[in-house]
Design a protein around this nucleic acid. Structure first.
Length: 552
RNA sequence: UGGGUUAUGGUGUAACGGUAGCACUACAGAUUUUGAUUCUGUCUGUCUAGGUUCGAAUCCUAGUAACCCAACCA
């Protein structure tokens, strides 16, 4: 039953820690900075951090890393909370690094008193020069040897607002010749006369990441502080500060960030796409943000499944977006209601059908026992998909062509007899006959056809708008290409079909429902819909063996 | 000319000195009133070179490659 699934490296560490009695429970945290929307990379981290404390005893905090008032906003706080909840996770405590500003200030004072921090008057450029390079040792600042008393009073003056932005900083006193650049007297406090989204104007000095993150972890007794690989060099400083401050020893562990093909996954790049209007906003359905994927019709289940299948490790990776699509198809196939919509219509007239309207029944979802069937109007005039008819079909084409027979889904078998064209030679109508004895459910015709088409009764068709999305970029790894990543944006990533023909049942579409437009893909209602005009987003296409066959 | 991290099929991830497995993809086939779903099968892999060992993806040595580090960002 419970065939054992292998553990990832973090689960191994945790199981060892639990087994050794190092911890009775584990505490993790998800630490977003509220300066942007969450994306699939964050989803990985969320599933990891919250998933770990679902699997093992303990809990996970949500902590906003809000130490830079210039870039952070409440709008982002709200969106982040909504996204985590939507993904299906619950945090134990909602916390903010800014909750700890008083405590962090005291930590800084402690460091100064121990002779391990000093106020530096150097300019930003001077400090950068002092740092040296990865291959050259840095040099000490001329302010490095100020007395403890002087440092204390200068730091108090910084806090009191006596200085302008950039005039002074507080630096840890470690080693300017250290091989780890981060240990070369890192800046731990800077002056920013800026309004903070939570603390308002109480502070004009703010701690840097390195002097906030680890300390916040420690205050919250985080046992496993999980972050991405680029923070590996920070771990030495993280540990050094905890040791010097003699506070609860949280530990940092790093895993490789998640990348996906045909998209970009950095907040900076996503912000550019939004600001430069390459997309309509953070929740444009083509974006890899959680809010965009929600709007597009992805389910939390499918995203969690994706994260689970990909797993975590420490090596660079670019996951095939096809796996994400597989996961969402797998879930949607189970839950989506089947409906028929013709995106690019061509009219079919059944010459031997009378003028009455007949209602045929069809299943909403064959896999769902609770789902009821629905009645669909059928009549003399119908629409089918233009690509489902060819005058001169290639081999293996088993849709409609002159003389051929196909089944109309849940209805009758029809045969094409005549093609009507306009002056320009465009096909405007197909005259067909239907086989009365071939009705679905009691077909006595004895005829087997290879093709089954979706259709909509012309007299009952409901006009809807359909938005088809394709990958946002033309290349697998836009960040790794020559030049700017925006040069590789796919110009055809959005295709709007203003007037698709839908069966009447779709008039009652609900936002929370998922639909499969037969043979066309999975769709959901978009928030731009009005009562006059329903708008549907294509979440993902169906697998298309015919399209593949044609490429050969 | 520094420090750190990582190398397993096309992609992602297992194997913890003992048969290189799983999933996605690709390909072939069966079923199908969705060319969907479902089912079956096939292909492709241990960065390189040495060494230790009865036996190495795993241990040792030497290379190679990729990524990260010089923001008063996180």
């Amino acid at each position: 039953m419970s065939e054992e699934k292998s553990l990832n490296f973090l689960e191994e560490i945790i199981e060892t820690d639990l087994k050794n009695g190092k911890y009775k429970q584990i505490i993790t945290r998800f630490p977003p900075e509220p300066n942007g929307y969450l994306h699939m990379g964050h989803a990985t981290s969320i599933c990891l951090n919250f998933g770990l404390t679902k699997k093992y005893p303990g809990y996970t905090n949500l902590r906003f890393d809000d130490t830079n008032p210039v870039t952070e906003e409440t709008e982002y706080v709200d969106s982040i909370k909504a996204d985590i909840k939507w993904l299906g996770f619950e945090w134990k405590h909602e916390l903010y690094a800014s909750d700890y500003f008083d405590q962090l200030y005291q930590f800084a004072v402690t460091l100064i008193k121990k002779g391990l921090a000093y106020v530096d008057d150097s300019t930003s450029e001077e400090i950068a020069t002092q740092k040296g390079t990865p291959t050259q040792a840095g040099v000490n600042s001329k302010y490095r040897d100020r007395s403890m008393e002087e440092n204390i009073s200068l730091f108090e003056a910084m806090r009191a607002g006596k200085y302008k932005d950039g005039e002074k900083v507080l630096r840890a006193k470690i080693d300017m010749a250290h091989t780890n650049m981060l240990m070369r007297d890192p800046i731990i406090y800077r002056i920013k006369h800026a309004h903070h989204h939570r603390t308002g104007d109480k502070w004009c000095i703010y701690p840097m990441y390195d002097f906030a993150h680890g300390q916040s972890d420690s205050i919250e007794n985080i046992t496993h502080s999980i972050c991405t690989l680029e923070f590996v060099p920070h771990r030495e400083l993280y540990d050094w500060l905890i040791e010097q401050l003699n506070i609860y020893p949280s530990h940092q562990y790093e895993f490789a960030r998640r990348n996906m093909t045909y998209t970009v996954m950095s907040k900076r790049k996503l912000l550019q796409l939004v600001n430069e209007k390459h997309v309509s906003g953070w929740d444009d359905p083509r974006m890899p943000t959680i809010s965009a994927m929600r709007r597009r019709g992805y389910t939390p289940e499918s995203i969690r499944e994706f994260c689970d299948r990909v797993g975590i490790a420490k090596r660079e990776n670019v996951v095939d977006v096809g796996l994400l699509e597989f996961c969402v198809r797998e879930h949607l196939n189970r839950i989506a209601l089947r409906r028929m919509v013709v995106l690019d219509p061509v009219k079919v007239v059944l010459t031997n059908y009378n003028d009455e309207v007949e209602y045929i029944t069809s299943e909403g979802n064959a896999d769902d026992v609770n789902d009821s069937t629905r009645a669909i109007p059928f009549g003399k005039e119908l629409y089918i998909e233009r690509e489902d008819f060819m005058e001169n079909p290639p081999k293996k084409y088993f849709r409609l062509f002159p003389g051929s027979m196909v089944r109309l889904k849940s209805a009758y078998i029809i045969q094409c007899n005549e093609v009507i064209k306009d002056a320009e030679g465009n096909i405007v109508e197909l005259k067909c006959t239907y086989l009365p004895e071939s009705k679905s459910g009691n077909d006595t015709s004895g005829i087997h056809v290879k093709g089954t088409l979706h259709w909509v009764s012309a007299a009952h068709a409901v006009k809807i708008e359909v938005r088809l999305y394709d990958r946002l970029f033309k290349v697998e790894d836009p960040s790794n290409e020559e030049g700017d990543f925006k040069e590789y944006i796919n110009p055809d990533s959005l295709q709007v079909i203003p007037n698709a023909y839908a069966e009447p049942a779709l008039k009652d579409a609900k936002f929370e429902d998922r639909y499969q437009f037969l043979r066309k893909g999975y769709f959901c209602l978009d928030k731009d819909s009005t009562t006059d005009k329903l708008i549907f987003n294509r979440t993902v296409t169906l697998k298309d063996a015919w399209a593949k066959e044609q490429k050969k």
